[in-house]
């Protein structure tokens, strides 16, 4: 009888019957749910980031000046031309133009309807001032400059309210990020409890594996592989459900046609980010299961 110890090569075998037990049955469904929520949050994050970019571009560099219409159009035009000349002299002003009447009508139409076209209503004049972002003049300064010449001038710096809107959008983005992190933590916690239950169930087997000389890592790997497989399956389901849900949401939003909301558009980037949830969830499950097993095994004899 000669039994030689064979040479080592990497060979994997599931010695633990983890696959057959009940402890892991709900894991994929929990994972699916978590990944579904994470996918929605991520899509939300992207949409908000998009909106923020659009707003950011809007802040760029325009100040609008309204001049109430006077009795006489010719006189008005002269005063406007004078104002534009003065504005162009101001430091930080790149250019100033009067908006064509037709454009003003278009802008007011949503509010006034066909009345906007009526000559009965005195439409204000609108001057668009392009400013250099770095040293743009303050609205009050322009107002102070023009008021002596034109009564009732009204200066709007869009930047001010756009900036506060932008701040709000950024904080919602942070909330979405925190939600994704919380989801990851909840997922990991689920894996921890599932793994512990599995270990309790297979305690005898684990002991025998130790007695025959298995390293903790050998045992942990079997739990880790199993958890990552379940994580993969679960996140696949989650993403598969999130896809149609997001498309439906976009469609509904598009139909409502809020003028105020930026057009919701799910870019390739969003879908890629959501797709990476699958390997990420599998990896989270694997690492967590491994760590859980290693930690509990360290307490065994």
């Amino acid at each position: 009888m000669k039994f030689r110890l064979p040479t080592r090569i990497d060979w994997r075998t599931p010695d633990l019957p983890i696959a057959q037990d009940d402890t892991t049955r709900f894991l994929p469904w929990l994972m699916a749910f978590m990944v579904f929520l994470a996918a929605l949050s991520i899509a939300g994050m992207f949409v908000l980031a998009d909106a923020a970019r659009t707003l950011d571009r809007g802040i760029e560099n325009t100040i609008t000046i309204q001049v109430p219409a006077g009795e006489n159009q010719r006189a008005d035009e002269e005063r406007i031309a004078g104002a534009i000349a003065m504005l162009k002299q101001m430091p930080g002003v790149a250019g100033a133009d009067v908006l064509p009447r037709e454009r003003v009508v278009q802008l007011l139409e949503p509010w006034l309807g066909s009345a906007a076209r009526s000559t009965e209503i005195p439409l204000p004049w609108v001057i668009d001032v392009q400013v250099e972002r770095a040293n743009a003049p303050k609205a009050e300064m322009i107002s102070a400059l023009l008021t002596p010449y034109i009564t009732g001038v009204q200066v709007d710096d869009h930047g001010v309210w756009l900036r506060s809107l932008l701040r709000a959008v950024h904080s919602v983005e942070w909330i979405a990020i925190i939600i994704v992190i919380l989801i990851a933590v909840a997922t990991a916690a689920t894996v921890v409890f599932t793994t512990r239950a599995g270990m309790a169930l297979h305690r005898d087997t684990i002991e025998v594996m130790h007695f025959v000389g298995a390293h903790d890592a050998y045992i942990a790997r079997q739990f880790a592989i199993r958890a990552s497989m379940l994580g993969f399956k679960g996140s696949l389901i989650g993403v598969a459900l999130a896809g149609p849900a997001l498309l439906l949401l976009t469609m509904l939003m598009g139909n409502l046609g809020f003028g105020l909301l930026p057009q919701i558009h799910l870019s390739v980037g969003v879908w890629l980010a959501i797709a990476t949830l699958i390997p990420v969830a599998a990896a989270v499950a694997m690492v967590t299961a491994r760590a859980t097993v290693m930690k509990s095994l360290a307490r065994m004899v």
């Binding site: 080592r8 090569i9 060979w11 075998t13 390293h215």
Partner: peptide, 8 residues
């Protein structure tokens, strides 16, 4: 089992 844990 004892052979497999040493990756025989």
């Amino acid at each position: 089992l004892p052979l497999r844990v040493v990756k025989a």
